[in-house]
């Protein structure tokens, strides 16, 4: 669709100018219409205005996106808090388990490679005997 309109004498003008001209003609003609027709025209104009959506610019789109996010803010906050709790609990569990594994790994590796056999560490009399032997 073109935005240039031909005037009767061959001149061209833009959509906006053309619209202004139509508005002027309609306004002038409205003075000569009867009340019922004027009312119908008014109602039609209002409906047209309601249906009219001007093309939105980048700023307007950004603003509406921010408004949409703001309307979700309470649920977003709840979700982030819940996710943080889940992550913290799992991270704490992971840290505890890892520490336990490392501790067991160190002690067991040392115990199993030690010169003393496992039985020496299972015999509960041996430490007491050692103490008695050293003090006598």
């Amino acid at each position: 669709m073109t935005d240039q309109h031909q005037r009767p004498k061959g001149e061209t003008f833009s959509d906006a100018a053309f619209a202004r001209r139509i508005v002027g003609n309609l306004s002038a003609a409205a003075h000569h219409t009867d009340e019922a027709v004027a009312e119908r025209l008014k109602a039609a104009r209002l409906r047209a205005l309601e249906a009219h959506r001007p093309e939105r610019g980048t700023l307007a789109r950004l603003f509406s996106a921010v408004r949409a996010v703001c309307s979700l803010r309470p649920v977003l906050r709840q979700s982030v808090a819940m996710a943080a709790v889940v992550v913290l609990v799992l991270a704490g569990d992971h840290w505890t388990t890892t520490s336990l594994v490392l501790e067991l790994e160190e002690v067991d590796a040392a115990l199993l490679t030690d010169e003393l056999p496992i039985d020496a560490y299972l015999d509960s009399d041996f430490p007491a005997w050692l103490q008695q032997d050293s003090s006598s």
């Binding site: 649920v75 819940m82 996710a83 799992l90």
Partner: peptide, 14 residues
């Protein structure tokens, strides 16, 4: 939906 997505992704990350 947002709540479920947050929980899902946090569990996935962990």
């Amino acid at each position: 939906l947002l709540l479920i997505a947050c929980l899902f992704f946090s569990a996935l990350a962990t």
